[in-house]
Design a protein around this nucleic acid. Structure first.
Length: 428
RNA sequence: GCCCUUGUAGUAUAGCCCGGUCUAGAAUUCGGCCCUGUCACGGCUGAGACGCGGGUUCAAAUCCCGCCGAGGGCGCCA
């Protein structure tokens, strides 16, 4: 069966009047008016109207909505409201028939609820609102890569199957690895740090896994993280990298996704930069002024972040956290060793990223591990690399899915992930 | 782990609070008939649902209990 096409729908235009074209797509709408009929056909590039009349009416036999067709026809002027040309059908070939009933209505006139849409996610991609979200996500990924590569970062891929659950913190997923205990990686942290030895500036965009039974609109068991690590950069330097990535993402998508923004009903606004920088100590003061009393060294709970977010509604950095709240590899400040060279990037209350300067001296790392009740012998593979000339370095990890929710103005990460995994959802 | 909300045709909903009028309504989708410029086409017509189990009651979509499913929040989340 020949399935080739001469044109994508976006290639068709009114100046081609009289020309024969051959294109494909799925049937969005089918309106029969006695001895003539109108079809609207969509491919990924656009939508056009096809008209059938006279003897050609027999071509409609067996045709229904959402089925995939290949149409040959002639371009002609149209009297339609939304099209300045149309295709008069000569041949309609049904390539794949859509069954009835379909589990959701992909036209989007009646918006199906998220559970039904996720259960039928592939079909949901025919909904232009959903498709637009994932076209935007692709643009975002391209923009991030462009910004990082321009700054001499090299893209790497670290293992997701790891042998030791050494870092503490979030729970890991267990995995049987040929009879050995293995885990799914929760972060590329140790590997990306090691890579600064020879590649200096690295980044990874990949899925990571956390076995937390979180039920919120911003947590998933499998999420996409953008991670960077850079030699000879301090935490303020990588904050600047992060800021320019975010601003570039907003600039690029604001300019290059007019259609998508219309489909999702959200205008992307470029944030002001530089982003405000608030230290942990200042944050405690601000909270104190709102009658929320916290001792130095206490972690900021979600409710505290919501209060801070009310005061700083856009992007802002929360910097210089107490050392005791940070993981073992974070570097202290020179002037106050109780404070760390660390930061979170917030969007209002939402934490998008966290990062900082890392320790690069193996002896310091070992003593920090002991302070945090971790056993240095579990980190031998990692620590040995620090004896090979480990440059001072800094980095961060950012939740891509969360950035996407901010970009398109929604509050559930499930909307921006194709097949989300959470404690209650493992399929499809 | 805790709390709140919710489950009616394929989809999205009305009805539930206050039991009887529900033979469960309107929309859309789907089938049939009519229609040569529709554009959410229109007209006529037909098909299609109360998550499962138990209880209360003369009577349950409606009230109660259990189970299952879903949505959301808190906590957890180096």
């Amino acid at each position: 069966m020949d399935i080739s096409r001469t044109h994508l729908i976006e290639d068709l235009n009114s100046s081609m009047e009289g020309q024969d074209v051959l294109f494909g797509g799925w049937i969005v709408d089918l309106r029969k008016l006695g001895k003539m009929a109108f079809l609207t056909v969509r491919d990924v590039t656009g939508m056009c109207q096809v008209i059938v009349k006279g003897d050609s009416m027999a071509l409609l036999e067996g045709l229904n909505r959402q089925s995939v067709v290949r149409i040959s026809g002639k371009i002609q002027a149209s009297k339609a409201k939304d099209f300045d040309f149309e295709v008069s059908a000569i041949e309609i070939q049904i390539l794949a028939k859509a069954e009835y009933p379909l589990p959701i209505d992909p036209i989007g006139r009646l918006e199906s609820d998220i559970d039904n849409r996720l259960n039928s996610r592939a079909l949901d991609m025919r909904n232009q609102k959903t498709a637009s979200i994932f076209k935007l996500r692709s643009q975002v990924l391209a923009s991030i890569r462009e910004t990082l590569i321009k700054r001499k970062f090299i893209e790497i891929n670290t293992p997701k199957i790891i042998g030791s659950a050494s870092e503490g913190g979030a729970d890991l997923f267990n995995l049987d690895y040929f009879g050995k205990q293995a885990y799914l990686a929760q972060s590329p942290q140790l590997y990306k740090e090691q890579m600064t030895i020879g590649l200096e500036r690295v980044f990874e965009i990949s899925s990571f896994y956390r076995a937390e039974k979180s039920h919120t609109g911003r947590h998933l068991s499998e999420f996409t993280s953008v991670d960077i690590e850079a030699a000879m950069m301090d935490y303020t330097d990588v904050m600047n990298v992060l800021e320019s990535i975010v601003v570039d993402v907003f600039k690029n998508t604001a300019e290059n996704s007019k259609t998508e923004q219309e489909e999702i009903g959200h205008e992307i606004k470029i944030p002001n930069s530089p982003f405000e920088r608030v230290t942990y100590t200042q944050a405690l003061e601000e909270l104190g002024n709102m009658d929320i009393k916290l001792e130095f060294g206490e972690d900021l709970q979600d409710s505290h972040l919501r209060s801070l977010g009310d005061k700083h509604p856009g992007f802002f950095f929360l910097t210089d956290w107490p050392m005791k709240l940070k993981p073992f590899y974070i570097h202290e400040k020179d002037d106050d060793p109780t404070l760390s060279r660390s930061f979170d990037l917030q969007y209002g209350y939402l934490e998008l990223s966290s990062g900082g300067r890392r320790l690069h001296d193996p002896e310091q790392l070992k003593s920090r591990l002991k302070e945090q009740d971790l056993d240095p012998s579990n980190f031998e593979e990692h620590l040995k690399t620090f004896g090979w000339g480990m440059p001072p370095h800094s980095g961060w990890g950012m939740g891509l899915d969360r950035l996407m929710t901010v970009l398109i103005g929604i509050d559930n990460v499930r909307e921006v992930v194709l097949y989300p995994r959470d404690p209650d959802r493992l399929k499809p």
